[in-house]
Simulated scan of single mutants.
Amino acid sequence: MSDSNHGVAEPAAPKPSRLGGFVRELFLRVGVLPFFLAAALIAFALVSAQFLSLQNLTNVARQSVYLVLVSLGQMLVLISGGFDLSVGTAIALTSVVSAMVMVAFSAIMPDLVWVAILLGALAGCAGAILIGAINGLGVAQFGVSPFIMTLGVQSVGAGIALYLTGGVPVSGLPFQFGNFFGFGRILGVPVPVLFAIAAIILVWLVMNRTRFGAHLYAVGGNIKAANLSGVNTKRTLFLAYVACALLAAVAGVLMTARVESGETNLGGSIALESIAACVIAGVSLRGGIGRVENVVLGAFFITLLQNGMNMAQIGSYLQMMLLGSLLILAVILDQVRYRMLMGNR
């Protein structure tokens, strides 16, 4: 008996739609950020008519400056294959030390206020760089887990900041400091925004046009292969943590100018927010993958999300829950994206 199906062609497997292929390609290239951003824009635009106004978006851009700076530093460490939980402490220590030095020197030399401001800012940055150097030495030289190292340094740094101030804000900063670095404008552009733009350009150039940037991607991609290729992996890791702390210090100085006092609680949740901004922007937790422009957009998205939740009158505790949930979802989707990328090779 002949087979009744003989000569009949098997039905072809359905081809993925053009839209589905575009979405998949976008997800592989950029990550979850475009989808999260579109969802937030639609949801909050329905909640408040003012959400997409130029005034509100400009306000969000100005507020995102501090997170952009910290996220750029966090990106450097994540690309190297680690992460930094001590960025909040770096900000707090920068704030406290810079404020104390400014107050002391402005009292000693009241006619040289800008010298006092400069010395204070440099002292604050030096304190943060010391934090970054300790992190870098522990991770690069002694092979300590970035989680344990930065968590320990975060605790020590927070204790030092509280010991220096007794938990009391440092007041009496020079008026010129807050007036210029916190609220000043140059050609109509807020000074903190100019600092952020300069940092974005500098980090982009470092990551895309310098040997250090190439080495950082190589170390994060495969540290053993990078070492065999002649890359000084220890120096690269050390500099990544120092650069992360320095960018956090710049954010700390600007935030201190904004609140016009040295505060130990500045940057309390910024470690979580900066990691969320980077992961949502497609920076892989495994290292070796990440783009500066995406991280800037990721930091803007986190600030936009907080702004939208405030407009929707969502409580601060619920906001923390939503942000944490978003980070968990972004990490899960990062795992999915990594497997898809490996499957395409």
Rank of each mutant, 00 (worst) to 15 (best):
S48Q: 04
F36W: 12
M100R: 15
V96H: 03
F51P: 01
M100C: 00
L52E: 00
L67E: 04
S53T: 15
S53R: 07
V70F: 05
A92G: 10
V113L: 14
Q74K: 10
L122W: 07
V103I: 08
V47P: 00
A121D: 02
M109Y: 13
Q55S: 14
S86R: 03
L57Q: 15
L37G: 07
L41W: 12
F35D: 03
S98I: 12
L112K: 14
G81A: 06
A39K: 05
S64Q: 03
G82D: 06
L85G: 09
M109L: 14
L93M: 12
A43L: 15
Q50C: 00
L41H: 01
V70H: 08
L112Q: 15
A61V: 11
G81S: 06
L119Y: 08
S48W: 05
N56R: 02
L112R: 14
L72M: 11
F44Q: 04
V101D: 04
I79T: 12
L67I: 14
A99H: 10
G82T: 03
L54E: 08
Q63H: 12
A123R: 07
M100E: 13
I79K: 05
V87L: 09
L76D: 03
L76I: 13
L72S: 09
V70L: 09
L122Q: 08
S64V: 03
F35R: 07
M109A: 15
I108C: 00
G81Q: 05
V96W: 01
V77N: 08
R62L: 11
F51L: 03
G81T: 07
P110F: 12
V70P: 04
V97Y: 05
A92V: 03
A38C: 03
V115F: 15
A40I: 08
A104Q: 12
M109K: 12
G81D: 01
M102Q: 15
A99K: 11
A92S: 13
I42W: 06
T58R: 14
F105C: 03
L112W: 14
F83M: 15
G88T: 09
F83Q: 06
T94S: 08
F44V: 07
V113G: 09
G73D: 09
V77H: 07
L46R: 04
M102S: 06
L118A: 15
A49C: 00
L52A: 12
L69G: 09
L122S: 06
V87M: 11
A121I: 15
G120T: 09
S98P: 08
S48G: 01
L67G: 00
S80C: 13
I117R: 02
A61M: 13
A39L: 15
A99M: 09
S64N: 00
Q50K: 11
V87Y: 08
L76H: 12
L112P: 00
S106Q: 13
V103F: 01
Q63P: 00
V60H: 02
A45C: 09
G82M: 01
L41Q: 03
V96T: 09
S80T: 12
G124Q: 07
